[in-house]
């Protein structure tokens, strides 16, 4: 949906906002949509500034901390008590988390 190319300022449309809001499960009013069009355009044009730099010689940053291979050994420890895990669930039944019916 977004492709930010060098030197081209992305035009954010109402459809873009609605699409992103849908992916994030957000319900926006018409006023909010208008506001987010402007906000997002600002954000994108700000980030777009970076495209003015020549980064062809720079490797992509996959992680900001320069550490690799942080592992744990394959050892089993006790899980949490079921009651504790379900304690904050808004809805539960028969030791299970309960949500409104989802059918895929």
């Amino acid at each position: 949906m977004f492709t930010i190319r060098k030197g081209i300022y992305m035009k954010v449309t109402k459809e873009t906002i609605e699409y992103v809001a849908n992916l994030a499960r957000l319900k926006l009013t018409e006023e909010e949509k208008e506001k987010f069009i402007r906000d997002m355009e600002n954000i994108i044009s700000y980030v777009d500034k970076l495209n003015e730099l020549d980064t062809s010689e720079i490797a992509p940053t996959d992680h900001v901390i320069p550490i690799n291979n942080v592992f744990r050994d394959d050892e089993v420890l006790d899980s949490y008590p079921k009651d504790k895990m379900l304690m904050n669930a808004p809805s539960k039944e028969n030791g299970c988390f309960k949500v409104p019916k989802v059918v895929e």
Partner: peptide, 22 residues
């Protein structure tokens, strides 16, 4: 594996619901 990919809960199949979680 004996334990899960990112935590130490068991991977055993067929335990009582929500007893192998953290």
């Amino acid at each position: 594996t004996k334990s899960k990919i990112y935590c130490s809960c068991t991977t055993d199949f067929g335990g009582e619901a929500n007893t192998h979680i953290c």
